[in-house]
Amino acid sequence: MSIKATLETVNRMQNDGVIDRYAIGGAVAATFYLEPMATLDVDIFVSLPHKAPGVLVSLSPIYEYLTSRGYRIEREYISVGDWPVQFLVPATPLELEAIAQARETDVEEVRTWVMTAEHLVAIALQTGRAKDHARIVQFLEQGAVNRDRLNEVLARFGLLRRWEQFERKYLAGSDE
């Protein structure tokens, strides 16, 4: 089963009211803007319906929906077809905005949403693992981010100082 089929399943979950908005993040989303990069899973950031303020967020409805339809749970992933999917609720205001401002696109007539390049870079900066930094460099090298919009996102979420550190460490002497 392809990623397209995985997205169809996620869309069914949305139509059935199990999830509210969603946005693809991680390497699959980065592939929207860059050349395809090998990855073994799909990160789907979801906002859940009917979430009262202060109530603990639970992914149980997603797990119940999918397991009742025969999908398997493997550690933090749910195998939807061939692809392990990690459903993530936004842990930061940045991720929340990334879902809200995700770009709508389609994959052979399957409607889906992908985080903007600027949000992906900001989230990668916030996460801060070596592979995240490498991905940021890829975005910059390929001119896939709008620097003005990126600066706005970074400023909005207090990431400018971290960005300066990143630039000093990884971009010093380059054209970026």
Binding site: S2, I3, K4, V28, T31, F32, Y33, L34, E35, P36, M37, A38, T39, L40, D82, W83, T105, D106, V107, E108, V114, Q142, A144
Partner: peptide
């Protein structure tokens, strides 16, 4: 590769993962 459509790129991701 970056200029391919998202659908084409996802097909490549499927192949990369299978490999």
């Amino acid at each position: 590769l970056a200029s391919l459509s998202f659908a084409e790129k996802l097909k490549l991701l499927d192949k990369l993962r299978n490999r």
